[in-house]
Design a protein around this nucleic acid. Structure first.
Length: 943
RNA sequence: GCUGGGGUACCCUAGUCUGGUCCAAGGGGCAGGACUUAGGAUCCUGUGGCUUAGUGCCCUCGUGGGUUCAAAUCCCUCCCCCAGCACCA
């Protein structure tokens, strides 16, 4: 197999058959997201890439001029991170590299980020080539200022976006590590994965000059507040916040400082000192008491919580606990009668919940005390869910009565804030800890650069683009549309890492997801840039404007030192290749990269250059599990190639899955499959020894082939590679098997069938297909031949039905033989008469009519009428088995002919004599079996 | 939690939109047989249970209900798995 690979790689390379230049043909531009080169390709890459390669090869054979380029991504933090860790001599990092196959000597060189990039680029390049990637390598490049022309391109992109108003400066809350002094992304966290900043509403309770802001997500509950909770053991502080004096937990004060507040500390105060004080709630100015609760944490929001016992199980239980806890009440000198008199104030009416929803649910679930955290969680979510979905605010809530919870939330918040009785602060619901082991907070970043994805007009444009786009599978469309809706402004610049500097603010580097969205346009000109060694300085904005936007006059693109011929060549390339016809990627990029890709295109390019299609696929599992280094089932592409070879790897992956499913790679199955390919080649070598005799079965095979061609073609169009292999390979070969079994021996037919199979599988297993094509007599690459076409003229229903009849009859005979357990001397077959066929068709065409009607209908036919009771009995049976009536029937004569024609074959199969008769006038029917004959189901008698 | 995709036999999977021909295609595994000195490869047969000179019965497509003459397929409940949820590639 290895030699075959080498051989064809050379042919492809020297024939330059994947190098694409504009010509008169229709074009097809397909791309694969350039990989981030901080490691070797793994099976996940191999899977998505192969899908793209299959499409590229398929389209070539369909007559398209296909451009499939490839490049390498290096911007961002991780590569810098690796270099940094090697520089610091981290053993773990070194081990990771050694594991990935880096030699001891090279590891040292990983101190240099540029070395890392070139090292992995080299590995990738060789690997993709050997894998059979049909790439035009002349257009390759590496991002970052390793390729200064690329940086120029990105600068152009951002200047254009800024001019359009799509890059703006703004403020934004992020989870932030005070120690690292930088935002803490999900993967940078020891704890709190998936947490995001949440905005708490702070309800302002007054206590003299001071405000105690209680944090909540449910501002409506202020109508049902009975008291405030404070943790007596926490430290609180008096602070000046902007122009008000607040009391909040110590931690809250620190957080507020990072949230664009002017915070001045005035002094500490123990939580216990606050307990027993009375505050005024802001709605009706009722005085309510501050009571102690251990479940309140200073870490969470303001450290002050409203108690709403009617609707919050925690509050209800805590209050009940407190009522019973005489010692605590005494300690804090709280009047037990006062506390005892606190009763839940119900503010939400929900069907199925009574006067005290929280209390009732707690009682039902058996919550005994505050210590029952698990049960309390359950109770909370139950009450919340019911109230949120079907609850309505009651008259306690004044003008808000009648609103549902979801309706009221936003309105209440707005009104309260406007009325000065509420404020807000950001925090995370659960604890987040940075990799450096520091607890993170929410910080509001200022003067950050954003892509204005929230812009409604922009969103509309993207939706418009997507309306016309092809999505493979179609199911992902809704996912994209959803993404557009929830997309908010996206920070597009960072302070550190590799990449292109924001042209107008060199402090910032364009963030990596934001510098990789329109580079497909760069591919179209990369050939010229690479081959003509065009210097970066020559690529001014005017040049790009002309090439990509058709703006300006080529003779006036003066700021550039470029010859006009080069500029117009690039313009031509762009105009020819754009738009991108299909972008192929795994499903994890849907909500980010792929959506951004459409956003940027709609912002920058003319409508006719907007992307035309996106194909999305699943994630490769290995032995049923998600691939991961820690599970020890991480498989790199070089390993797979070494072990199985390119075609076997491609075959398995493409057969493993399609659509959004996660394909599975199970090494033990793989050897089997690569043998299938060898076997395929071996069979081709045997064709030479066949003769020229042509029979009915040749017609059958050619007829069957038509449908398989059609199915395989349809599957390729939609990148359903599994189905393509099923139809184009497995089903075809199964038919060949039957053909041979039935005595098919025609060299022409076999040549035709095997050439067709070779073509159908060539996008998936290009090496094997080339080899097969060559052995079948093809003189040049199979990829220069054209895709097989479906020819309805070669379909032959009668022959196909005849074979179906054979298969069924054989299996029936076998079944009987098995039951009887005797060796057959002679087997008689009786073909059903035509009136049974008529009756069958009549019944199946009159579904829904009742028995009587059918009988009347049947008796109208003189031929059937003659059969009288037999016909009536048959109608009864047919109605019962309505769903089993085959759609296509052979006439009795055709059936008789088909069986007689295959008599020898049957005799060979069962090693006994066969007699084929018409059931209507059997010559020999001692067991009276002939009457059982049914169309497509001859009666059988075994002697 | 939110959004999207899923759960089919020993395993991987097709079928679901458009209900009936579905005990449910295909591949793998396993078992038996043929060929071979043997192993490998290849080929054939079998792979829910029962029953029978046949075209039959019962049980099965995550769970539990419902609609229908008829449900893997349509509707509802619940459970479980995967991806994404952003300043990170």
């Amino acid at each position: 197999m290895r030699e075959i690979e080498e051989k064809w790689l050379k042919v492809w390379e020297s024939g330059r058959i994947f190098e694409a230049n504009p010509d008169a043909r229709k074009k097809f531009f397909i791309t694969f997201p350039y990989p981030y080169v901080n490691g070797p390709p793994h099976l996940g890459h191999a899977y998505s890439f192969c899908k793209a390669d299959v499409m590229a090869r398929y389209k070539r054979m369909r007559g398209y001029n296909v451009l499939f380029p490839f490049a390498f991504h290096a911007t961002g933090e991780p590569i810098m991170g690796v270099a940094e860790r090697i520089r610091r001599g981290e053993a773990k990092q070194k081990e990771i590299l050694l594991d990935a196959g880096v030699s001891e000597g090279d590891v040292e060189k990983f101190k240099d980020p540029l070395f890392i990039v070139s090292y992995w680029r080299e590995k990738w390049l060789n690997c993709i080539k050997r894998y059979g990637g049909s790439i035009d390598w002349r257009r390759s490049f590496i991002t970052t200022d390793i390729t200064p022309t690329y940086s120029k391109f990105i600068e152009w992109q951002y200047r254009r976006l800024k001019a359009l108003g799509y890059v703006v400066q703004g403020t934004h809350p992020v989870i932030y590590c005070p120690n690292c002094r930088s935002p803490t992304g999900d993967h940078d966290r020891l704890e709190g994965e998936g947490e995001s900043p949440e905005e708490y509403v702070l309800i302002k309770f007054r206590m003299g000059d001071f405000i105690l802001p209680a944090g909540t997500f449910r501002p409506e509950t202020v109508f049902g507040v009975t008291n405030l909770w404070i943790n007596p053991d926490e430290t609180y502080v008096r602070v000046q916040v902007d122009d008000e004096k607040w009391i909040v937990s110590k931690q809250a004060a620190e957080k507020l400082k990072e949230q664009l507040r002017d915070v001045q500390l005035l002094g500490d105060v123990r939580g216990s000192e606050l307990v027993g004080e009375v505050v005024n709630e802001p709605i009706n100015n009722r005085g309510i008491m501050i009571l102690p609760a251990s479940f309140v944490s200073g870490e969470s929001a303001s450290g002050i919580v409203m108690c709403v016992p009617a609707h919050a199980p925690y509050d209800w239980v805590a209050l009940e606990d407190l009522k019973r806890n005489e010692r605590t009440l005494e300690n804090f000198q709280i009047d037990p009668l006062y506390v005892g008199a606190l009763t839940p104030i119900k503010i939400i009416e929900t069907e199925g919940l009574g006067a005290n929803p929280a209390g009732e649910v707690c009682e039902r679930l058996g919550v005994a005390s505050q210590a029952d955290e698990e049960l309390l969680e359950k109770a909370t979510s139950e009450v919340y869910r019911k109230e949120f979905h079907s609850g309505k605010l009651n008259e306690t809530c004044g003008t808000y009565a009648g609103l549902t919870i979801s309706q009221s939330k936003e309105k209440l918040t707005q009104d309260f804030v406007a009325g000065g009785i509420a404020d807000s602060m950001w925090d995370t619901v659960n604890k987040v800890v940075c990799r450096c082991n520091t607890k993170c907070i929410v910080k509001i970043l200022e003067n950050q650069w954003f892509l204005k994805f929230s812009d409604e007009e922009w969103k509309e444009k993207v939706k418009k683009a997507m309306e016309k786009m092809v999505f493979i599978p179609e199911a992902v469309r809704s996912q994209f549309l959803n993404t557009i809706d929830w997309l908010r402004d996206k920070a597009c610049a960072r302070r550190s890492g590799l990449g292109t500097k924001l042209p107008w603010d060199k402090e910032w580097i364009v963030e990596t997801l934001s510098d990789s969205v329109i580079y497909m346009a760069y591919y179209t000109i990369a050939k010229v840039l690479n081959e003509s060694k065009i210097p970066a300085e020559a690529l001014t904005d005017e040049v790009f404007d002309y090439i990509f936007l058709g703006k300006g006059d080529i003779y006036k693109v003066e700021s550039s030192q470029l010859p006009t011929a080069k500029i117009s060549e690039m313009r031509r390339e762009f105009q020819y290749w754009y738009p991108v016809d299909l972008r192929v990627s795994a499903k994890d990029l849907v909500q980010n990269h792929l959506t951004f890709f459409v956003f940027h295109h709609t912002a920058l390019f003319e409508e006719r250059y907007w992307p035309k299609g996106i194909a999305v696929n699943g994630y490769v599992n290995v032995r049923g599990q998600k691939m991961s280094k820690s599970k020890g089932n991480f498989v790199t592409l070089p390993q797979a190639l070494e072990q199985f070879g390119a075609d076997a790897a491609r075959f398995i992956l493409m057969y493993a899955g399609e659509g959004l499913d996660d394909p599975d790679w199970t090494p033990s199955d793989i050897g089997k499959h690569s043998q299938k390919l060898d076997q395929f080649l071996a069979t081709i070598d045997e064709i030479k020894s066949l003769g020229w005799e042509e029979t009915r079965i040749d017609k059958w095979l050619v007829s069957r082939m038509q449908m398989n061609v059609r199915r395989a073609t349809e599957a390729c169009e939609e990148l359903r590679t599994r189905s393509a292999l099923q139809a184009g390979f497995f089903d075809m070969l199964n038919d060949v098997k039957w053909y041979l079994k039935r005595g098919g021996r025609n060299r022409n037919t076999m040549q035709k069938v095997f050439s067709t199979i070779s073509k159908l599988i060539s996008p998936i297993v290009p090496f094997t297909a080339e080899e097969a094509w060559g052995r079948l007599g093809g003189s040049e690459s199979i990829f220069k031949s054209s895709w097989p076409s479906f020819d309805p003229m070669l379909l032959n229903d009668e022959v196909e039905l005849g074979e179906e009849l054979m298969v069924k009859t054989i299996s029936d005979i076998k079944q009987i033989l098995e039951l009887v357990g005797k060796t057959p001397g002679k087997i008689h077959l009786y073909v059903a008469p035509n009136w049974k066929r008529k009756l069958m068709l009549m019944v199946s065409q009159n579904k829904g009519k009742d028995h009587r009607e059918l009988i009347i209908l049947a008796m109208a036919d003189p031929e059937i009428k003659k059969k009288g009771n037999d016909a009536v009995a048959l109608i009864g049976r047919l109605v019962k088995e309505l769903n089993r009536i085959p759609e296509n029937l052979l006439a009795a004569e055709a059936e008789h002919f088909a069986l007689r024609h295959s008599k020898e074959f049957l005799e060979e199969q069962f090693d006994c004599k066969f007699e084929i008769q018409l059931a209507e006038k059997p010559e020999h029917d001692p067991a009276n079996k002939a009457k059982n004959a049914m169309p497509m189901k001859p009666a059988i008698f075994i002697e």
